[in-house]
Design a protein around this nucleic acid. Structure first.
Lengths: 282, 282
DNA sequence: CTCTTGATGTGAGATTTTGCACAATGGCCG
DNA sequence: CGGCCATTGTGCAAAATCTCACATCAAGAG
């Protein structure tokens, strides 16, 4: 039988697409991935990849083998979860994935509370836009703004938060609404509900800044560049920002908590879940 | 994530029960298995095995992990089959598992025919009593005397053969049936249909030889030791044996061909299957 | 067209892993 | 009770593997 570690490298290469990317996720050198895949080709007697200088493409045989081998990866992740679930006690490291501003503005300020309740838990808090895969254990617990649909997850709605328009107090004073300039997301976020809502309000008025980063919008609005659609939890407590009410129906987004079923009962994970619930109650 | 090859060694150890046995099936030294399992224990942070001097027992955690990891092994075997199935052409090595006497008396004599039809096929013919696992690729094609029940197999009935009583001609001449001495299987084969049939015929008469080996029975019967229940294909063509008819309803056993679904369409496997069908037609 | 960038290929040295040989353990059988 | 035997544990030399560094290559930007 083929070396399972060779299969591991190959499956990762098949998913990542390049030797270098696979090497990064595996934490090894790209030369190692190349050699292990070559070893797998020898042991199976099949040509699995086309080695191009820009990327390595899977051959038809490679696609077939990758499809058959990927259940191995599922099982391997299940082993990792089982190992974590088997560990007793409330100690351990728990990785939380959340939207970046949510991580910094909502979760991080309250982490002290969790720390004092459960001193044995170490937290890894990752603010990232892309959805971390819970199945692949990129995170143990995830906060999402959309209801997660992956199989095998336990999902719970934690609450919701609203958006309003905000600007610097001095800007709102001196600028009549018909002359508002706006700050919005760029094309990568054009489909998000709050951006759709904002565009409807903007109408034919001017957009002076497009960015993919919410913090940048906050900073620009504070500086008096224009009006931005911000979560109320960001804008309402900030003396450098002032809400501007509009006639349109206000928008709100739901916050979902997701955790893999295998980890739901693990004490440290449970503790983190309860902590996150309490974070959004207030 | 844990090293997949460590998992491979651990799963094998879990199935085989001892380091040495696992080492044999993996083709490595027992020290390697021990070290890799230790490495897995370190990486998972769990104690997986109890190291006794006579055997290594799985802990409860070990059993859990083994249960979760064994789907990995299934997938790995599926990869092996997929690799074999992907190879083009009718060349290749095909492993046949069959009852020992069947292999030597029925299949082996006709292998020349297969060889001349398909010169590119190399045959590995394994005569063994225990049922080779097709799922674990211990054989590509198996002949069985019982209908196989494992999942994922393609099964076909090839035919059947009968049993009769045979003895040396001189023995049958000088011995009246009520004084027959018999040659039969030992306890390990007591449940086989032909042995049950033979016992009913024997009644209270004497059994002078019990053995687990059919060839030994043939040799003893030829030598005039007594009467044995033999497959007709063995006894009828042998001038040193003569059939003795009895009133009891004759018994026959079915011969089944089994192959894994994934390999059924592979050209060399197909060729071997057709060859085996033709072997049992005559 | 050239430069930059991110990819793959290749060789040498360092590290890790492996196999071997032998010692130790403990159940089984007479 | 004592020898037997298969199994596990350990240290060292050998072999395989990995990392690192550098060369090469192709696509896209300026």
């Amino acid at each position: 039988m083929a070396d399972w570690e060779d299969l591991h490298h190959f499956v990762t290469l098949a998913r990542e697409g390049t030797l270098s990317a696979a090497a990064r996720t595996l934490g090894v050198d790209h030369a190692t991935v190349a050699r292990r895949v070559a070893a797998l080709e020898t042991s199976t007697g099949l040509k699995l990849v086309d080695r191009r200088s820009r990327a390595t493409l899977l051959t038809d045989d490679g696609k077939r083998i990758a499809a058959v081998a990927s259940p191995m990866e599922e099982a391997a992740f299940a082993v990792g979860r089982a190992a974590q679930a088997a560990k007793p006690g409330v100690d351990g490291e728990v990785t939380i994935s959340a939207p970046p501003n949510f991580a910094s503005s909502v979760i991080a300020p309250q982490l002290g509370r969790l720390r004092s309740q459960h001193p044995g838990i170490r937290i890894k808090l990752i603010g990232e836009k892309r959805r971390a895969s819970l199945g692949r254990r990129e995170a143990d617990v995830a906060l999402r703004l959309m209801r997660p649909v992956e199989a095998g997850l336990f999902v719970r709605k934690l609450g919701s938060f609203g958006f309003s328009l905000y600007g610097a107090p001095v800007y709102l004073e001196k600028t009549p609404p018909h002359a508002f300039a706006f700050i919005g997301y760029d094309a990568s976020m054009a489909a998000s509900p709050q951006e759709v809502w904002l565009r409807a309000i903007i109408g034919k008025r001017e957009v002076v800044l497009r960015t993919n980063d919410l913090e940048t919008q906050v900073a620009a609005a504070r500086a008096g560049l224009g009006i931005a659609a911000l979560p109320c939890y960001l804008g309402d407590g900030d003396p450098r920002l002032q809400r501007h009410e509009v006639a349109q129906k206000p928008i709100s987004r739901d916050v979902w908590l997701a955790v893999h079923r295998d980890l739901r009962q693990v004490p440290p994970v449970r503790a983190v879940m309860e902590f996150l619930v309490s974070c959004l109650k207030s």
